[in-house]
Amino acid sequence: MTFSLSTEQVPQANTSQSIPYLVVVDATIDNYQSLWASSLLGKEVHILDIETDGIIQIKTLLSQYQGLSCLHLICKGEPGQLELGTTHLSDKNLWEYADEIRQWREYLSDSAEILISGCELAASRVGQAFVSWLGLLSGAAVRVV
């Protein structure tokens, strides 16, 4: 599901558009629709299908863009773990998704940043290591906000 909170055209499949900031929201976030009211206004927003692998969804979504400066993930999670669609990404399975996450580099700018909010991902040493590994794989600066 795609929502454009600006006057820009929503990208169609097989088009490559350059936008600076992309927001991906996991539909399991309580009251995610209320996010539209303020902080996401003017940004391209996509909602993940809760019945599909989230990493694959993100890879497919990113393939429609080029030169993203920021990928903002709003999702649930625990220290050292993210929930994206049906994917529970953690230190235990991160390397199974390494190839898909490395492909994100093709669509991100050289100075891109990945913001992760809505969860306590980095609340432990394992979580902090996970954030570092995610940055290594994606080529982006990863911050939990």
Rank of each mutant, 00 (worst) to 15 (best):
I56G: 02
E8M: 02
C75H: 03
S18E: 00
Q9V: 03
Y97F: 14
G127R: 06
E100Q: 08
Q57R: 02
E96I: 12
A122N: 11
I56L: 11
D99R: 04
I74S: 03
V144C: 11
T7F: 06
L5D: 09
T28A: 11
W104L: 13
L61M: 14
N93Q: 05
G118Q: 06
S4R: 10
H72S: 08
V142I: 15
I56C: 00
G135D: 09
L71P: 14
I56S: 05
V23S: 02
Y21F: 15
W104T: 10
G80P: 10
I101P: 02
E106F: 01
V142S: 10
S117V: 08
V126Y: 10
Q66Y: 01
Y65V: 01
T86S: 09
I58V: 15
T86E: 07
K76S: 11
I29M: 13
A112F: 12
L62E: 02
N93T: 03
G135E: 08
D99H: 04
L41F: 09
S124R: 01
D91G: 15
Q9G: 00
L82H: 05
L71V: 12
T15I: 03
E113A: 02
L62A: 03
Q17G: 01
K43T: 15
W104F: 15
E78A: 09
I56P: 02
L89D: 02
V45C: 09
V131M: 13
I114A: 10
L41Y: 06
I56N: 06
I116P: 04
V24S: 03
D30N: 07
V25I: 15
G85Q: 07
L94H: 02
S124L: 03
A13W: 06
L73C: 02
R125F: 08
I74C: 01
K76W: 04
D26F: 09
L134K: 03
A13N: 06
L5C: 10
L61C: 08
P20M: 14
L62Y: 07
S90I: 12
V23P: 01
L61F: 02
T7C: 00
N93P: 11
G118C: 03
C70M: 14
W95E: 12
S69R: 12
F130A: 00
A129W: 11
I50V: 14
G54H: 06
L115P: 01
V24Y: 07
Y97M: 12
E78F: 11
G54M: 02
I47A: 03
I55T: 07
V25W: 07
L89I: 07
C75S: 07
G77I: 10
S117K: 12
D91C: 13
V23C: 07
G139V: 07
Q128M: 05
S63G: 08
A37I: 11
Q33R: 13
R105K: 15
Q33G: 05
